[in-house]
Design a protein around this nucleic acid. Structure first.
Length: 423
DNA sequence: TCTGGGGTCCTAGGACCC
DNA sequence: TCTGGGGTCCTAGGACCC
């Protein structure tokens, strides 16, 4: 039989914090979003005391303190590195691999028996934990959507592995799975379905295809077919290049000064351009947006503007200039701004951009070599070793990360000290 | 005081073409 | 009274995911 195996790290960000800090084991741990805004990951101990995903930090700070738990700012350097290690273990298995997100991956196995696939699931769980320190759960079924459901069950089970062994077993689970818990069915669709008296995965499967397609488009129909046991969600791991590249951050405080705003924008554009060059693309459009804080009373304003470039490029200075031009179109003084961002659209491969007679091609330019040097230096010696003056020196707008843990695995300065004492 | 960020896919409808 | 039909391309907006 063929099987879809979903490996999902347990409360990944929080587990990463535990890997190098075992004193956190069995205690509530939660990780916060940028600017220490709200909870984006929490361990089961944290859930137990009533901490929920998405809750603002200031609303649950006290609860955590009372229960001897700990919060962390998000440390993407650490999580990214541990994610790579987990994925390295997973791709060593003889299967088709699809790395789906920072903390989960599908492995597709052919010609296995229930017994052999169960053994593989247990081995995966054991190996990942031993080699990386990260706990994972494994859900196994005939389709990815069912594997997701299996994974939910595995998360709650003792040995962390769950296999759908028979159609009878699938039916039993579908009866008690709320439709809102099905992968691919979010809040809006759940509401619509409930209005039509569809509450469980089983209810949904019984509906006719035409009706499902009308309500939830072809994607929704795909989901239902997967629930019925026919694999039809395609593998996406061969898609490497992104279609759009975006960088935006909320500020640590409200920004009214035009100079500060432009400085932040230049910085986000620089980060965007680095991502662009990393995938060997050029961009044809630069879109800039900004907004005030919609959680607050007071005058609100949000706007966006897109500039089409005369020739596609990946040169940071040109992109900063375009971003400024876009910002000039939308900036209004008198407002307190919370956020700005920069989005590149219409990405094309670097090499194909050589057919414009009127401009020097990006591909051959000396500027490109300079970009390469900058990227290399910054990669080796750390971000911002070489930087543009327009991105600011003091950067008073940068986000708050007051509870940041060390970058244990990627910086010599932060490496963990272990002391032995003789007894 | 304090409420994240970065993606994907699909569809309807308008503009335009012959 | 009567006003074609069949395409393509683009964009905005809505849904989803982690």
């Amino acid at each position: 039989m063929d099987f879809a195996v979903l490996v999902d790290c347990n409360s990944f960000y929080a587990s990463c914090e535990r890997v190098f800090n075992p004193s956190l084991n069995n205690k509530p741990v939660a990780v916060l979003s940028n600017n220490d805004g709200c909870v984006i990951a929490c361990t089961k101990e944290a859930k137990k005391i009533g901490i929920k995903m998405g809750t603002p930090f200031f609303k649950c700070k006290k609860l955590m303190e009372e229960n001897n738990g700990k919060f962390f700012s998000s440390n993407y350097t650490l999580y990214g590195d541990l994610s790579n290690r987990v994925m390295d273990v997973l791709v060593s298995y003889p299967a088709e691999h699809e790395i789906y997100s920072i903390d989960e991956a599908f492995l597709l196995f052919n010609n296995e028996t229930i017994k052999s696939i169960f053994a593989i699931g247990r081995d995966i769980r054991y190996s990942v934990k031993r080699l990386t320190g990260v706990p994972v759960s494994v859900g196994i079924a005939s389709t990815k959507t069912l594997a997701k459901i299996a994974n939910h069950i595995a998360k709650k089970s003792k040995n962390g592995v769950y296999v759908f062994c028979s159609q009878k077993q699938v039916n039993k689970v579908m009866k008690i799975t709320p439709v809102s818990e099905v992968w691919g069915i979010g809040r809006q669709y759940s509401k619509k379905l409930q209005k039509n008296n569809i509450y469980t995965a089983e209810d949904l499967c019984k509906m006719p295809d035409t009706w499902i397609r009308k309500l939830m488009t072809n994607r929704g129909l795909q989901t239902v077919w997967e629930l019925r046991g026919y694999p039809c969600v395609p593998t996406t791991s061969d898609r490497v290049e992104k279609k759009g590249i975006n960088t935006s951050r909320s500020f640590s405080h409200l920004v009214t000064d035009k100079h500060e705003l432009y400085e932040a924008l230049a910085y986000y554009t620089t980060l965007n351009a680095e991502k662009l060059r990393k995938q060997n693309s050029c961009t044809q459009m630069v879109c800039v947006y900004l907004s005030t804080n919609h959680f607050r009373d007071g005058p609100q304003y949000r706007a966006a503007h897109t500039i089409s470039l005369p020739t596609a490029t990946a040169e940071t200075p040109l992109l900063i200039r375009a971003a400024y031009e876009a910002m000039d179109k939308i900036f209004k003084s008198g407002y307190s701004y919370k956020k700005t961002g920069c989005l590149f659209l219409g990405l094309i491969p670097e090499i194909s951009n050589s057919n414009n007679l009127f401009f020097k091609t990006y591909y051959k330019s000396a500027e490109q070599n300079m970009m390469k040097v900058m990227d290399k230096v910054n990669e080796k010696y750390g971000r911002d070793t070489l930087r543009y003056a327009s991105t600011g020196i003091k950067r008073s707008w940068t986000m708050n990360r007051k509870l940041l843990s060390p970058a244990y695995t990627t910086s010599w300065k932060h490496i963990k000290n272990v002391e032995f004492s003789e007894k």
